[in-house]
Design a protein around this nucleic acid. Sequence first.
DNA 1: GCCTGGGAAATTTTT
DNA 2: TTTCCCAGGC
Length: 782
Amino acid sequence: MNSLLENLTEPQRAAVTHRDGPLLILAGPGSGKTRVVTQRIAYLLGQGVAASQVLALTFTNKAAAEMRARVEQLVEGRQVWLSTFHRFGARILRDYSDYVGLSPNFTIYDSSDAKQTLRRVIEAENVKVMHYTPERIAAAISSAKNRLVTPAEYQPRPGRPLSQIVGEVYPLYQKRLLASSAVDFDDLLLHVAQLLYKHPEIRADLDSRYRYILVDEYQDTNRAQYVILRAMSKDYPNLAVTGDPDQSIYRWRGADIKNILEFEADYPAVHVVRLEQNYRSTKRILRVADELISHNVQRKQKALHTENDEGEPVRLTVYPDQDSEAAGIALEIQSAINKQGCSPSDFAIFYRMNALSRSLEKALREAGVPFQMVRGQEFYQRKEIKDVLAYCQLVNNPLDDIAFERTVNTPARGIGKKTLQRLGEYAYRLGLPLLGAARQAAQIESLPKRAAVQLARFVEIIDRISAVAHRDVEEVVGTVLEESGYRKSLAESESEEDQNRLANIEELLTDARQFDEQEHDSDIEGGQLEAYLERTWLVNDIDDWESNTEKVTLMTLHAAKGLEFPVVFMIALEQGVLPHERSSSDPDQLEEERRLTFVGITRAQHQLQLSYAVRRDYRGQRRLTIPSPFLLEMPRGEMEQVQLATKSFPESIEEDSMEEFGDDFFETEIDQRHPSELESEALAAGVNAKPPAQKPVANSAITTAAALAVGQEQPLESGLAEPAVSPDLLTQGMAVVHPDHGLGKIVALSGAGKNRRATVRFVTAGQKRFVIAHSPLRLASK
DNA sequence: GCCTGGGAAATTTTT
DNA sequence: TTTCCCAGGC
């Protein structure tokens, strides 16, 4: 046990060994916070606390997985409950579902299901929504739920049309969810919070069941989470929270930074530990981060320091456009791997929005650098996967109308809009779920005989699946595929797209089998299927991000929180991107964007490059950019600027041709300045600008390599391909070249003339669909 | 009832 | 640029 504490600093040890009473760990980035939390768990167990009395809550699945692995290392085989808040909420709700009006086998709707439900409600009740989209309304409802405002409590504000609509829709929406025995993500917290304050005996029970609660990223908790934690720490106030106000980046989801700023007021007996020594980054990186974040007003003063090396200057690189930004980074990584023996996993590239990753993917692929992208909700969100899972969902919860609607005519079995409308009316009148109504199809007068028969057949399918619902998930899924005819309909299809779907479905079977093998000790009463479904709803991907794989990591700044990498690239530090344009009006939101930037910077251990592009194409539009104001808030003395610009810069924005890549595309000096470059110029002047020739060797070598390669790329490509052809001349099986994806083969064609589309399978980039007339596809020459 | 094509709208971050 | 929705034709 003592060895457990040996390598800890004094404050770390204090946090680990604090036994009873509230504990606030203010942990700066890279201060060993996760280590402290996991060791604390081990310490408590070592002190004789039962594993079942410890509850550790995180915000994301990634963090939970990471922590679980570390705890497992420290105390093998001791099962502490460690999960995300939402998953915890789901488990609690299973036990107490009837208290909140749910059945124990309730469904969890993801945002698109929730949106769909909202649509149905608006439609059915004929609510006037004016110009407000379902998304806007959903966001407003979500925000109310996060603030713990129930439908009954919601007060529309006069003069706020959106709130008037929400006041009308929110209760209907909630009623609909309950009727389907479904919850949305927010309900997982809202219901639990209500349960706790409405039922003192349940509160007391849970409070004593979880005597030691640890919370990670406490700065990101919202009102509902706050109330849940308070309720469970009354009789046993052994609540240990860790967090860093400077890393609060989920305000938009209702996170209330006050929760952590006022923790000491909430728990007067609190013991506060500050972890301010950073073990991750170089002094220079840390100073840049520290100086930037000091521009925030809403924060707790913190003295970050490190005993690490001074390190290299933080680099600020200006690229002419996003493609050279991507190519430059890709080549730099490539050369570091080849020449310096770095591993691809040493590198990470962060961006503000997923939409910014495209150029990077392309550039890395072309450079032959392996990478992994962390994108939320990949696999389980695919249409075919959701279709198949919807059958399982309906079998698991027959009240689930969304699942019914999704499955009833997928694959097509002749049950159309009219039939569904009539069925819906009947169900609504009698207060039945759609599946229940379908069981009575023969008695619905408005339904033609044929439609009634089809519905009855569908009900039979569901019943046949239900018959095996208690078996292993793989068998359930397999039965769905057979009985529903889903597999057959895909297998019969000629299109490559459907073949792909088929492959995905096979993957789902594999996933189900793995689940059966690994999670067989599940203690959920509803059995395997329910446990599996819960995972598909709350875990965003089958294979989450892997830290020990030999790949470069691409992710959003939000996803990067809690991670660290030797070398970090942050792209698009541009006004409107970082900070995001939707945050510019509100000072609070601007502070959050600054924190987001802070989070990104502090992920870097040894090297950090910030970059922006002078012009950037975004949703089809070319824009000249303005450098992020955050760059001006960073200490210039710690930074060095690299400017890659072009002589032959297009004079007008309309000019959409990029063909003038020449040998002199990259210049080390700016000869002819584009108006927008004046901005970057001004910035450059302050930032220790050095002529590239005098830069450190490593940098200049890389820069030159990047410049050369990018400069040559274009002629190389065009040399390989023929000029564009008329769309109708393309036939299946033809070899084509795409500037982004390289060589591919046409596997399917549809439409004609300028609407003719081609599905192309690329050698390296997988399968893509194009409108030929608008695509840069060329015939490959022999 | 089903499918296709055309047009319009919407684009942050995650459970 | 992509995605979603709807109308119209088969």
